[in-house]
Design a protein around this nucleic acid. Sequence first.
DNA 1: TATCTACACCGTGTATACAAAACATGTCAG
DNA 2: CTGACATGTTTTGTATACACGGTGTAGATA
Lengths: 268, 268
Amino acid sequence: MSDRQRTVKTAMADISRHGRPKSPAKPPVGRGPGAGWPKGSGSAHVFAAIHDAILTLDLRPGEDLDEASLVARFGVSRTPIREALIRLAGEGLVVLLPNRGARVAPIDLANIRGFFEALELCQRAVTRWAALRHRGADLLRIDATMAAFAAAADGDARDLGDLNRTFHNAIAAACGNVHIAAAYGRLLDEGIRLSRLALTYEAPLQADRHEHLARIVAQHRRLAASIRAQDADGAEALAAEHADLFRRRINRYLSASLAQEIRLATTL
Amino acid sequence: MSDRQRTVKTAMADISRHGRPKSPAKPPVGRGPGAGWPKGSGSAHVFAAIHDAILTLDLRPGEDLDEASLVARFGVSRTPIREALIRLAGEGLVVLLPNRGARVAPIDLANIRGFFEALELCQRAVTRWAALRHRGADLLRIDATMAAFAAAADGDARDLGDLNRTFHNAIAAACGNVHIAAAYGRLLDEGIRLSRLALTYEAPLQADRHEHLARIVAQHRRLAASIRAQDADGAEALAAEHADLFRRRINRYLSASLAQEIRLATTL
DNA sequence: TATCTACACCGTGTATACAAAACATGTCAG
DNA sequence: CTGACATGTTTTGTATACACGGTGTAGATA
């Protein structure tokens, strides 16, 4: 077996170890034809599982994905695997190399400025429009997701990325512009990867972690309040500030890790 | 044969009548296994052909796409057809209905305001950043595509949509932000469909057509000049103005067609 | 006549078989 | 010893076979 296959299988095994995925990793009854998932759900399951694994970095950026390993892991044939990979490529999470397979989209740290630039632009737009156009149900969702994040932050949950994304997606759902909301959603996905990449360089229990979380929660609260008050300018300004907080945090971690690597490289 | 199949075949036959596609509609040698396109190109060809047909409205918005007809039309099996449809769905040009096939994404005139809003936002950003960050090769491409559009407009070419899109894509390529450029590219695609939809309601040789084209060409020229001069504010303002010109043109045609339809409906 | 149901047909989702391209390995010539 | 070439293996791209879900229709019943 080649090295490519091993890496994928290892990462997928990690999923099980972490308790993911929520849905069963294998079809209810067994293998073989006619014994799989209901009907159109095999491809959807594979897509969701790989999507999740990429966002959690269980499948690391740049890692090779060969179809044979995925077939073995998910117990479906190559057809739904390939469909899932194509869909993931459409979302920018996977890169397809003609005649040479697929790999997890690398995180382009060289152009990270462009990422934050796009994130700020979309976040400002989405938040402003949400303030202007939200409906009752939107506010309920925004408040609920905000509370979920705040509770998890209080409770010392380890990974707040998903909850933060859910909060901002709730705002995006209220903005009344599917085009920008879709682009924003992708940026949020990429942001989760960045955030978790930075976490790997972060000391597990950093000194200012609680302070930082409190700042995020406070900004979320002000964001939700200005949206509720239909204060477009205020919401947009807060969105920019919030994006900047994220940017500074990531940049801090990345430059710290860079310094660390330089230190390592020079002492060798 | 069902009605669904007939509609697709008719539209595809239109492609041949119009002289499209540029690449051969069938593999060089013939049908059957082992006689198709090189290797990974069958799917790519189908994707490009359907993509083109959707943008030209040869495949009309909302039209059903069944795999059997596409198989017959392109001479490849269902597998590359399905891959192409999935990719197109990823770009928002096709809608996949679980267990019930695919259809060309409808043009959502009800939310057209959101489209123009997103277009203006992305066009402003992309054009501003292009002014700030362009490189030499970018300017060459921008000028070349601008000249191509202007020449075609002078020469009374019938369909300037592609050339206009190429010009703005050249600007997007110079903006140094792949995230927003990608979102902008999709909006330009949808804009072409909108433009051609409006054209169907337009009298073939409208009185103010030349005046309108001259205005577009003039704006393109000023856009390129401000980008070259690295005048970010000027470029962004022009981008907004240019988007607004497009919006007003589409809205004019659409409300004219709406009035026409109401007139028709009330006289019946 | 209207409605409900059983059934057959059609089309999609998945599995698998086959072909071609890329990759690795080993051999031979220089 | 090095490099180029040939061959076998691996992996992807495509074709095809099969099974399930959805849909429409015909017949029965109220």
